[in-house]
């Protein structure tokens, strides 16, 4: 289907979804921690905007509530917490360059293609307005994982973790117009608790290894030292 055959609403949803995916890519290669957190907040904002548009087009009103929840949690509260932690840990000037950025970004592009391939059977079954973006939601999940693999800094890991959650939420919105409210509230609660615990851990990790580089968490193995 060519893009000009789609309705304007659908084109809008695809545009926003593409921007969400773009924010994932830009997080992957962003070396400055504060900019990383800001990009994450932007992704939350875009996600929430997409949800509002989907709610408008599909007429599923409970999605407004999900959009609000996402806005508060993913675009405001968690980025605020992360920014505060980065400042309190004195990391605001910290630059963590990605090793082999070309390889990682090419790998990320390959993952997106892979997601389009995997989601083909789902897309064929769906009759929803948003079906073209299911692959994008899956890509956001996998790019979040790739980010956790490629980067070394704990703050980057947490942003990757939260961006996986973003991808999952996006998947629920575009493939089924959201999950039942009780489940969404539960997930939001879990994410919030996880964010608080991550904050606690930053301090513990720094206290114990005097750094926030996960490569230095390497004491536990089967090999006796």
């Amino acid at each position: 289907m060519a893009i000009n055959e789609l309705s304007l609403d659908q084109q809008g949803i695809i545009l926003l979804a593409a921007l969400v995916l773009f924010s994932s890519f830009s997080m992957l290669a962003q070396p400055r921690l504060l900019s990383l957190v800001n990009t994450f907040a932007l992704q939350g904002l875009l996600l929430s905007a997409t949800t509002v548009l989907v709610a408008l087009v599909s007429g599923h009103h409970h999605l407004y509530l999900s959009a609000l929840l996402t806005l508060l949690l993913k675009a405001l509260l968690i980025p605020w917490m992360l920014r505060r932690l980065v400042n309190r840990l004195g990391l605001h000037g910290e630059i963590e360059p990605l090793e082999r950025p070309n390889l990682v970004l090419l790998g990320a592009a390959a993952l997106v293609v892979f997601c389009y391939y995997v989601s083909l059977p789902i897309v064929q079954l769906s009759t929803m307005l948003t079906r073209n973006t299911i692959a994008i939601s899956m890509s956001v999940v996998l790019l979040g994982m790739l980010m956790m693999i490629a980067r070394r800094q704990v703050v980057a890991h947490v942003v990757g973790f939260m961006s996986i959650e973003n991808g999952l939420f996006f998947a629920a919105v575009v493939s089924t117009y959201g999950m039942p409210m009780v489940v969404e509230l539960g997930i939001a609660f879990d994410v919030l608790v996880a964010a608080v615990l991550f904050g606690v851990f930053f301090f513990h990790i720094r206290e114990s290894i005097d750094s926030l580089d996960v490569d230095r968490l390497n004491r536990l193995s089967e090999v006796e030292r």
Binding site: L197, F201, H204, I205, S208, I209, L217, N218, R219
Partner: peptide, 8 residues
């Protein structure tokens, strides 16, 4: 702490 981080 390493174990807990890995677990998390």
């Amino acid at each position: 702490i390493e174990a807990a981080w890995k677990y998390f």
